[in-house]
Design a protein around this nucleic acid. Structure first.
Lengths: 331, 331
DNA sequence: CTGAAAGCGCTAACAC
DNA sequence: GTGTTAGCGCTTTCAG
C-alpha cells in the first residue's frame, strides 16, 4: 500500500503540485485560503513526504552518520549523546553505525555518503579514517573524533592524549610509585601510541627508566581483556606497584582480576584508568582515572561537521579539549 | 562536485543507460564484451550508484532501523550485535537510532519508515510501541523486541519476564531469605510490570506475604539510580536481607551503595540483578543475575523482521526465548 | 542482447 | 499567487 503522493493531494485539493509543494515547505507565499485547503487534504489523505524524492531533487538528506567501532563500550555512548544534543534543533537526525571494526561494514556505511543518503559523517573509528586517505571519502563532509589518521586532512576533535597520559603517570609518581606498568591496546591506534608516548614522558620526567617489560598489550578494550592481563601483570619479575590502563573498561577488568588474585587495590597494586565512564564511580574501589569531556567532544564534533556542511570550503581545523584527573580510590 | 551519473557512464561506454543499469544489477544477460566495456567505464569515472534514485524507483532502501532508548545501557549493545549478525549477509544494513525516550526523536525516526528511507524497524523502545497503536506505524514492517505494548498487534521477541522474576525470587527463598526487597523501574514498562508479577508469584509460592514497602522504584536504569536506592533500602523498618533489581545496572549501582554503607554483600544483603550484561562477571562481588539471551533476542528479532519484509501478510507472531539463572557471588 | 522512453515523487524555474 | 513543466538518477517495460 503506497502512500499518497503530492499529485494526489493536489488533485484532492484542486490545486497544482507546485502549490502543494509550496505549502509543504512553507517558504513561499500562498494565499491563506488555499493553504488551508491543502493542509486539509494532506491530513485527509494521510500524506507523508517521500524523502527519497525530495532528497534526490534537493541533494540533501538531513541525515548524519555517526560511525562507532563498538556501542558496547560506554565511552562512546556519551559522545553520541553530545552529538545528538548539538544536532537536534538544526533539523538533522543522527544515524548510528556500529562498524565492529569490520572494514566491510565500514565501507558499506561510508557508501551511505557517496550514495547520497546521508549528508555527512562523524567517525570515531580508526580504520575508516585510514581508508579515507586512500579512498574518495575526502570528497565528503566528515570529521574525525577521538581517533584519526594523522595523515588524513580532515577536521579533528579530541584531547591531548600524550599530555593526559603524562599527567596520569606523574600523579602515580607523586604517590610514591616507581614501578609503574602500562596496559595499552594496539599502538596502531593513534590514541594508543600517543598515550604510550605520554607514559614514557612521565617516566622520563621523573627520572625513572622505561622498561618494555612493563608495557602490556590487550587485544581488545573490554572488561575481559583487562581481567586477562592481570596474570601477566603480577607475574612480572619486579612486580609493579601501580598500573595505568588506556581505558576504564580495561582498568575495571583488572580490578576484578586483582581481586581474584587476592591483591588489594590500591595497597598492593594501584590502578588507574582512562576516560571516566559513568561506571568508574561505581566500582569497588572507585576508579581513579583521567577524564575525557565526552559530551563536549561529541558536541564539538557535531558543530565542526555542521560548519563544514554549511561551508564546504572552510579550512580543516583540529580542536583539542582539556582532560582532567579524577582522583578516587583505586590509586 | 557531483559524482557521475549512469548516463555519463553510458555515454563513456558508448551504450544506453539501460545497458549500464543491467550490468550494475547483474540480473539480466549482457554480452560479455559490452559488460566489460561498461565495468571499465564505471571504474574510470569512479561511478557510485545513487541509492536515492534507485530506492525511489524500486521502493526499497535495504536499510533497517533499530530504535533503542539508550545506547549507554550495555544491555542493548549485545542485542544490536545479534541483529547485525543476522542481517548482514542478507544485504541489509542496520541504522541505530537512539531515542533517549524522547517522543519527538522517536517520531522523527519512525518517519524514516514512512518517508521510505528505511524498509523496516526493530523497536526496543516502549513509547514508540505504544504510539504505534494510535499512529499509522502498523502499516509498516516492524517488530518489537523485549518491550512492547500488549495491545499492539505486532511481532514480538522477548522472554517470559514473569517466570524469570519468579525464578529469581524462588532462588533467593531457597537461600533462606524471607525479607526480599524488589527494586523496580516504572511499571508502565511491560517488562517492569511483568517482573513485578513474577516477584509476587515467587513470594506467594513460598508463602511469604507481599509488602508494598519492599517495592522500591528507581526513576531510571543507570548505575546512579541503583546507588541512590540503597538509602531507602536500608532505612526500611524490617530491613530486608536480599534485594532483587530489575536490571544489572541498577544492581551494580546498589553494590557500590551498599559498600559505602558498610554493608557486606551477600552476607548483610544479598543482591540479585537481571540481564547478565558482560559487566556482571566483573563486579565485586560478581553479580548473581538472571540471564537474557541478548544475542539470540537480536537475531530472532531480525529474522522476524526479514520474514515480514519478505511476506508482508505473514501472521504476527510472538516468540519467547528461555532465560537462565546465573549464580555468582552476590546472592 | 540492446535501446528508447516512461515514470518513481518531488522542487524550482519560468510563465501567467 | 498559482500553474506548467523540466529534470534529479534510476529501473523497467516494450520494441526491435
Amino acid at each position: 500500500m503506497r502512500s499518497a503522493s503530492i499529485a494526489q493531494v493536489a488533485e484532492h485539493a484542486g490545486v497544482s503540485v507546485a502549490t502543494v509543494s509550496r505549502v509543504l515547505n512553507g517558504k513561499q507565499a500562498v494565499k491563506e485560503q488555499t493553504r488551508l485547503r491543502v493542509v486539509e487534504s494532506v491530513q485527509a489523505m494521510g500524506y507523508r513526504v517521500n524523502q527519497l524524492a525530495r532528497s534526490l531533487r534537493t541533494d540533501e538528506s538531513r541525515l548524519l552518520l555517526v560511525m562507532v567501532p563498538d556501542i558496547g563500550n560506554p565511552f562512546y555512548a556519551q559522545i553520541v549523546q553530545g552529538i545528538n544534543a548539538a544536532v537536534q534543533d538544526q533539523g538533522y537526525s543522527v544515524l548510528l553505525c556500529e562498524t565492529g571494526g569490520d572494514a566491510n561494514r565500514e565501507r558499506r556505511y561510508f557508501d551511505l555518503l557517496s550514495s547520497r543518503r546521508a549528508d555527512g559523517a562523524i567517525c570515531l573509528d580508526p580504520y575508516t579514517a585510514q581508508q579515507a586517505l586512500h579512498g574518495e571519502a575526502l570528497r565528503f563532509p566528515w570529521v574525525a573524533c577521538c581517533e584519526f589518521d594523522s595523515q588524513a586532512n580532515v577536521p579533528y576533535v579530541g584531547i591531548d592524549n600524550r599530555a593526559a597520559a603524562r599527567d596520569a603517570v606523574t600523579y602515580l609518581v607523586g604517590k610514591g610509585h616507581t614501578r609503574i606498568a602500562f596496559l595499552n591496546s594496539d599502538t596502531r591506534f593513534m590514541y594508543a601510541s600517543e598515550r604510550l608516548q605520554g607514559y614514557i614522558d612521565g617516566l622520563e620526567q621523573a627520572g625513572i627508566a622505561f622498561s618494555a617489560d612493563y608495557c602490556l598489550q590487550a587485544d581488545s578494550l573490554d572488561f575481559a581483556a583487562g581481567k586477562a592481563a592481570v596474570g601477566r601483570l603480577i607475574a612480572l619479575p619486579e612486580r609493579p606497584t601501580a598500573v595505568f590502563a588506556v581505558s576504564d573498561t580495561l582498568a575495571i577488568g583488572m580490578l576484578r582480576g586483582l581481586h581474584e588474585a587476592q591483591l588489594r587495590v590500591p595497597d598492593d597494586m594501584a590502578v588507574m584508568g582512562f576516560d571516566d565512564i559513568a561506571l568508574a564511580q561505581q566500582t569497588y574501589p572507585a576508579l581513579t582515572t583521567v577524564a575525557q569531556p565526552m559530551r563536549k567532544l561529541g558536541e564539538q564534533a557535531a558543530r565542526a561537521l555542521l560548519k563544514q556542511l554549511d561551508d564546504p570550503l572552510a579550512p580543516t581545523t583540529a580542536v583539542l579539549l582539556p582532560h582532567r584527573l579524577m582522583i578516587r580510590e583505586s590509586a
